[in-house]
Amino acid sequence: MSIVEVQGLSKRYDPPKGVLAVDDVSFTIERGEIFSLLGPNGAGKSTTISMLSCLLRPSGGDATVDGHSIVGDAQAVKSVIGVVPQDIAVYPDMTARENLVFWGKMYGLAGVELTSRVDEVLELISLVDRQKDRVDKYSGGMKRRVNIGVALLHRPKILYLDEPTVGIDPQSRRSILDGILTFREQGMTVLYTTHYMAEAQELSDRIGIIDHGKMIALGTHGELVKIVGEEARVDVAVDRQLDGMVERWSGLRGVSKASVEEDHAELLVDDANEVLPHLFEEAAGGGSRITSVNVSEPNLELVFLHLTGRALRE
């Protein structure tokens, strides 16, 4: 059963000639799943999440969240969502507890309920001991935890996380990802945006790949990988001219495609383990020596490359 249904959502800034940031996007998010919007910077992920947060009014289309229209019933939508913005949006001159109390009031909590929810969230984000310290005294990871904690205060039905791991250390990133997996275990629905392919791959039940405002692919990780035929990509560099080598390699069994990409050759192969020895043999036979080999198993990066012709830069 879908908690989010997006139909033909579009956003053009400064119409009629402004940038079309989101172009006729449609998708659904099922209850209890983690749905990731994956795409490079500027693809339209944040604009989409801003519209679903009722921060931006769509130029076209509509979406419902828990049955409420983002266009016609914004207040109802806001009461069931929790939004974790990309940048830390809490008050640095207030303590973690003061921040949570303030934001709890913004979500309509009061009295005993507010106090108990603040205590629960402080426990959840592991800041009970530091709750009376000002946020500007915290490490980056701790600030991120407060940033997420604010969105959990009112027990939202769906949590939006807009690139929450950008610019943080690996340990904090791991902590956040584990936390999100825990939320799913507790039955919370998560909409997650990222340009990190590995995060989307690890977390998501389903992934929507977005580029230039358009949803170019949608499905589970397995479904998306099938788009590139489950082939592995092998990047090979040699110490001589590549053109002749690529011609020789393209004739090998198990190599479906070979091309020159800047200073290396790019090959799509059925089974890298089987093909690699033949690559070395052919190179030696052609009087060249392979200087580097990089094997990429089928993944979302390849899917993006396949669909757009460009790399999804991390």
């Binding site: 947060s53 009722c54 921060l55 207040q75 109802a76 806001k78 009461s79 969502i81 939004v83 913005p85 949006a89 934001w103 913004m106 979500y107 309509g108 604010v150």
Partner: peptide, 9 residues
């Protein structure tokens, strides 16, 4: 903007 995502008019 975050305040505007809360159910506060």
């Amino acid at each position: 903007p975050r305040m505007l995502t809360t159910p506060t008019p």
